[in-house]
């Protein structure tokens, strides 16, 4: 997998040098080995900080909203899941597609830092990645894990494949997920209403309204969020009471319903580890069930399920999927 990093770096250098692109959007090394962050690189010397490895989980597509507006082309590396967000943003006219040079890059799932910490790994010196397992080097010691143990939740169920790009860097076939994407949604649906209520009350009451989920979400790309807009009637900076959490998260999920590509960034960045993607996935599962399979971002033209209808759609009284 180390090879991918080299190829990506090589590609970035070449395209910068021959003037195809003016800058590169990628991941930058952090202090602790696992804390990579999205960054823009303007020159070969800048690119020294570039890295693509098992910690490059961040979805770069949202940064293109700003980057694609600027002079000259931008090179972006897109993992399979990122590319769905990219398409969706192109569909919504938020990215100037002509200004972007897309390079699809192989991804066998990224690691969840929270899970590593649970296993006692605080500092990462290096990582050796294979398709089905991974070895993390920490303070001179090697730890080997089966992927399922340490993958980000979003990666362990990822079925996304590489869409069309200007170029592709890929060496292996993508691993097939061993878990069902909707398993937990189904489990929740099978609970009684009381159990579900207790579950969500427990989860959502952890919310500190840091807005990380909103800030990272590629579908949350409004110029000004309704929660920041006094005229919306629901503006709030913090949760004044615990209902607000629900209001915030339901509305956020509703606003991205039919547009959410299930990239899972919301849950990845949540400092309180709230499984926010389960809200989005509920909408996705309902949409698939009621209106036919739909994957947002699969292309950049198809109308979303909430801006379309058929005359024979199910009635709201008959749509409940779960237990009572």
């Amino acid at each position: 997998m180390q090879k991918l990093n080299e190829l990506a770096l090589e590609k970035a250098k070449t395209l910068l040098a021959n003037g195809t692109v003016a800058r590169v959007l990628g991941w930058k090394k952090g202090e602790l080995g696992y804390d990579l962050e999205p960054a823009v690189f303007y020159s070969e010397s800048d690119l020294e900080g570039f890295i693509y490895n098992a910690f490059s989980g961040a979805n770069l597509s949202k940064y293109l909203i700003e980057e694609s507006k600027k002079e000259g082309k931008v090179l972006v590396f897109l993992k399979p899941c990122d590319s769905y967000s990219f398409n969706q943003l192109v569909k919504e006219h938020r990215i100037v597609k002509e200004n972007v040079y897309t390079v699809g890059i192989e991804c066998q799932g990224k690691l969840d830092v929270k899970k590593l910490k649970e296993k006692g790994i605080e500092i990462v010196d290096g990582v050796i990645e294979n398709v089905d397992d991974v070895t993390v080097i920490s303070l001179g010691k090697e730890y080997n894990f089966v992927k399922e143990e340490v993958l980000l939740g979003k990666c362990s169920v990822c079925e996304k494949h590489l869409l069309s790009y200007d170029e592709v860097i890929s060496l292996h076939d993508k691993r097939t997920p061993k878990l069902d994407r909707f398993e937990i949604v189904k489990k929740l649906e099978a609970m009684t209403a009381d159990e579900r209520y207790a579950f969500w009350k427990g989860e959502l009451s952890k919310c500190i309204r840091c807005n990380a989920c909103r800030n990272v979400c590629p579908a949350c790309n409004c110029l000004k969020c309704v929660f920041d807009n006094d005229a919306s009637g629901i503006a709030s900076k913090a949760n004044s009471d615990s209902f607000e959490e629900k209001l915030f998260h339901i509305i956020r999920a509703f606003h991205v319903a039919g547009r959410c590509t299930d990239c899972g960034e919301c849950s990845r960045v949540c400092p309180q580890a709230i499984p926010l993607h389960l809200l989005n996935r509920k909408f996705i599962s309902d949409i698939n069930r009621l209106y036919g399979e739909f994957q947002a971002g699969e292309d950049d033209v198809t109308k979303g399920p909430l801006t379309a209808y058929t005359t024979g759609d199910a009635e709201p009284s008959e749509v409940f999927g779960g237990n009572k």
Binding site: E92, H93, R94, C222, K224, N229, K303, T307, A308
Partner: peptide
Amino acid sequence: ETLCSGCSVCANV
């Protein structure tokens, strides 16, 4: 216009 991001969902409906 200060809020609109031109995402074009409104024309669909």
